[in-house]
């Protein structure tokens, strides 16, 4: 099993955190993982992008060019995201912020109301975790079964009070697809 995922959104949406938590969880589930953020002369509000791969065997290029799954967190990222997904791959869109319809017809499109579901939990900031739940359910690559323990070791103690809401967000994302 190898799942190559490309993630994009605007800076501040938690694209990098989503990618890091995805591979961290994958690693804790015994997989080989790699996370590569597209670093550059980025600015607030610019597009944040990351390539993440989880695999049961050695990972070749860390750069995802033919993604099995692609996450689109905002409207501006849709164009680059559509290009990144392989034929037959899946495009998961945050339907609250992505209003245009994807043009490609050779891919599967899954819509998740990430912001709406996150706000129902308490804060739109959890939209990225809703999306991660959806990614887990759609791809099955990382199960996120022991997510609480993963969050406990990923975040410093001072952030542990947010763990229950993160878990709720992931669960909401799983149920949404």
């Amino acid at each position: 099993m190898t799942e190559k995922t490309f993630i994009a959104g605007f800076g501040g949406q938690g694209v990098i955190s989503l990618g890091q938590l995805w591979v961290y969880s994958g690693m804790k589930e015994g997989l080989e993982v790699t996370f590569f953020p597209f670093y550059g002369a980025e600015k607030r509000g610019g597009i944040a992008r990351a390539s993440v791969i989880v695999s049961s065997s050695e990972i070749a290029s860390p750069l995802v060019t033919q993604a099995d799954s692609v996450i689109v967190m905002n409207e501006d990222s849709l164009a680059i995201c559509e290009e990144a997904v392989r034929k037959g791959g899946v495009l998961i869109v945050n339907s609250n912020l992505v209003k245009s319809a994807p043009r490609r017809s050779d891919i599967r499109v899954v819509k998740v109301a990430c912001n709406e579901l996150a706000e129902a939990i308490g804060d739109a900031k959890f939209a990225n975790m809703v999306m991660m739940g959806a990614l887990s359910r759609v791809t099955g690559a990382v199960k996120l079964d022991s997510f609480e323990a993963v969050l406990r070791s990923f975040f410093p103690e001072s952030k542990h009070k947010f763990i229950p809401m993160n878990i709720k967000a992931v669960e909401a994302g799983k149920k949404a697809v």
């Binding site: 890091q20 591979v23 690693m27 080989e32 993982v33 790699t34 996370f35 590569f36 953020p37 670093y39 990972i59 860390p62 750069l63």
Partner: peptide, 10 residues
């Protein structure tokens, strides 16, 4: 290089 430096792995 920047790829090795910036990427995260186990």
């Amino acid at each position: 290089d920047g790829l090795i430096g910036q990427m995260m792995e186990g």
